[in-house]
């Protein structure tokens, strides 16, 4: 167990190293990406360019620049952005994280509740029009591009019907900190929550339904029914609990990925300054320090979540342990 933990940790570090090298290499392979002229400013004279190149160390060999950047990012934590030069990237990400957390956890609440409801209902009424209708709605949710849905939501709530009683409560786009106004926080996020949750409701509802259907054929379910428990009770008390294992591990991975910036499109469409949007901004401005920091941040989340899920499997299921 300890061995596998150690090995896993080693592999995780290797993965993170690989990602950082990849990003660094990609950045310096892009023509026009050389940050010197952007830092020096338009029209800067060649002498000024030279001084900036030297002061920022862009004239040093790439491996050394890489090492310096990693040191500044992880050890001294004083890596500063190239576009907003006073901005340290680590605190910048720490400030963006609560916004993403607010968005993702609210959406997660909605999608877990809604998908448990639809999945259980569909499995309970298997083969009926309700089942087919719910699963079709789930598929529809999976098929809608999230940015498009967000745009249409904005069109409806911010422009077309903003002045009517239906949506006049929707605040302008952007994030309102919980500490500033809890009700404002809720009103600003409720529509992004729903937009982000739609696809996951579809996915999770379908996964849960098929697990429940598979589980209902198992012996312990038959036993429970034979004992005379009501079908709905069996479904909820026994079936749901068993099926939750897949559901929870899937949830762990998705949640981690969204926290790491996977909700980029939702954040961009609704103007929420979260980690995903920060990464997008960094990429569109080719701001290497910020790209590096935000991608490493999301990679850490995803890799750790993967490792935790794998470890939990190893601990729970001896077959997987032998298989590795």
């Amino acid at each position: 167990m300890l061995m596998s933990l150690g090995r896993r940790l080693g592999q995780t570090v290797f993965v993170l190293f690989g990602i950082s090298v990849l990003i660094f290499a990609v950045f310096f392979a892009t023509p026009g990406a050389d940050p010197t002229s952007r830092i020096a400013g338009k029209n800067a004279s060649p002498e000024t360019m030279e001084r900036v190149r030297h002061e920022y160390g862009f004239d040093r060999p790439l491996p050394m620049q890489y090492a310096t950047m990693m040191k500044k990012l992880f050890i001294t934590r004083d890596l500063a952005s190239y576009t907003n030069r006073g901005q340290l990237v680590v605190p910048e990400i720490i400030q963006a994280a609560p916004i993403t957390l607010s968005l993702v956890s609210g959406a997660a609440l909605i999608w877990v509740a809604a998908s448990v409801l639809t999945g259980t209902l569909a499995a309970g009424f298997r083969g009926t029009w309700l089942d087919r209708g719910l699963m079709m709605a789930g598929l529809l949710g999976i098929s809608i591009p999230v940015f498009w849905l967000g745009q249409v939501a904005n069109l409806i709530t911010q422009a077309r019907w903003h002045d009517t009683w239906m949506f006049s409560w929707v605040p302008g786009p952007g994030y309102i900190p919980f500490t500033e106004s809890p009700s404002g926080w809720f009103r600003a996020l409720i529509i992004p929550w729903m937009v982000l949750a739609v696809m996951f409701i579809g996915i999770y509802g379908r996964v849960l339904r098929s697990d429940l259907v598979a589980v209902s054929g198992e012996d312990f379910m038959r036993t429970a029914r034979a004992k005379g428990l009501s079908p709905s009770r069996v479904m909820i008390r026994h079936g749901l609990r068993t099926s939750m294992i897949t559901f929870v591990s899937l949830f762990g991975l998705d949640f981690a990925q969204l926290l790491g910036g996977g909700a980029l499109l939702t954040e961009v469409v609704f103007g929420l300054q979260g980690v995903g949007r920060l990464t997008y901004q960094a990429l569109s401005g080719l701001d290497l320090p910020l790209i590096m920091a935000s991608v490493m941040y999301s990679a850490v989340f995803v890799v750790l979540a993967n490792a935790v899920v794998d470890l939990v499997y190893v601990a729970l299921d001896p077959r997987v342990r032998d298989g590795r």
Binding site: Q11, V15, G18, I19, L22, I23, V26, A29, T30, P31, G32, A33, Q257, G260, G261, G262, L264, L265, G276, T279, Y280, L283, L286, I291, V295, S298, A299, V302, V303, N306
Partner: peptide, 22 residues
């Protein structure tokens, strides 16, 4: 894992910026 760890769009965006430029 490396490829999967970088969120899909971030990975695609980084690749696109390079390929679109050159």
């Amino acid at each position: 894992d490396i490829m999967w760890a970088v969120p899909v769009y971030l990975f695609a965006i980084s690749l696109s910026i390079v390929t679109i430029t050159q």
